[in-house]
């Protein structure tokens, strides 16, 4: 009986790998080096909802039905995010990092894996309050075109605003958070003036290359979904995007310490996972 079960599990793992391979070959989205346990959970969730007979049927469906593949793409994206998520991190950015950036004539920031934009608008608000927004260019990228569309809109359901406001206050916000949006009761629309210096674009960290030199890279809660090899590859992109003295911010449970590129960085605010790239000797 047990052997039977082991075989079933083995077959399922093979089918999932084939599905991931099919999506890569047909659409170019490369999930082959994402966390296996994570991918499996998400695919099996979709499988149960789909009503299909087995994972192999999902392969055919993913090849032929673009709506279905969009759905899988969403399932594998995990776009969960918040404004001022981890207020302590934003406090550190405001108090320790922005004063460094202030000394530059022009500031370039890259938000990689920005999801629906909450993190980017949080940055814009802080830059405004510190008087730096006018000389800043923000690139906000994610590989999922549907989520980038949402990010551009900058409209969020009213029921999330309470948490955003609380986070904003905890992070050292200087005004009333309601100064930054207009509401129709159901949703909050962020001010157009916050979008002025932001370019939203699709960019895949796994398959695309460096596109600009920037002073600050913010990539939070994206690398946790990648295996060690892929993490190193992506951190390599950040190394190439940053000059000496450039700053890299990771998520609170992400760590450079075990990366092949660790020697290129010094921890700047270790407990907030903020690193500074060393100057070449």
């Amino acid at each position: 009986m047990k052997r039977n079960q082991d075989e079933q599990l083995e077959n399922q793992d093979i089918e999932i790998r084939l599905l991931i391979e099919a999506i890569f070959q047909k659409y170019g989205y490369d999930f082959r080096n994402y966390s296996q346990a994570h991918i499996k959970r998400r695919i099996l969730n979709r499988f149960v909802l789909s009503g299909l007979k087995n994972i192999s049927e999902m392969i055919h469906e993913a090849l032929c039905n673009h709506k279905f593949v969009d759905q899988i793409l969403m399932d594998l994206s995990i776009t969960v995010t918040e404004m001022f998520r981890d207020p302590g991190f934003y406090k550190a950015l405001r108090e320790e990092i922005l004063p460094i950036l202030q000394t530059y004539p022009f500031i370039k920031i890259w938000h990689a894996g920005c999801s629906s934009g909450e993190e980017v608008y949080s940055m814009a608000i802080m830059l405004k309050e510190e008087g730096l927004y006018g000389k800043t260019q923000i690139y906000a990228t994610d590989f999922n075109p549907l989520i980038i569309k949402q990010a551009k809109e900058g409209i969020y359901p009213m029921n999330r605003i309470k948490d955003f406001t609380l986070n904003y206050q905890k992070s050292g916000g200087k005004r009333a958070f309601s100064d930054y949006y207009t509401s129709n009761g159901e949703s909050a629309r962020l001010l157009e003036s916050l979008k002025k210096n932001i370019v939203f674009a699709t960019h895949n960290l796994v398959t695309d290359s460096v596109f600009a030199e920037v002073n600050l890279v913010v990539c939070r809660n994206v690398l946790i979904y990648f295996d060690r090899g892929l993490q190193d590859k992506v951190i390599g992109l950040f190394v190439d995007s940053l000059p000496g003295g450039g700053v890299l911010c990771l998520g609170s449970k992400e760590n450079l310490q075990f990366s092949a590129h660790y020697a290129q960085f010094n921890p700047l605010i270790a407990n907030e996972k903020i690193y500074i790239k060393k100057y070449p000797n």
């Binding site: 994570h38 995990i78 809660n221 979904y225 998520g251």
Partner: peptide, 9 residues
């Protein structure tokens, strides 16, 4: 057996 952390729903 290695750990993965996620911020999924």
């Amino acid at each position: 057996h290695s750990f993965t952390l996620t911020v999924d729903e």
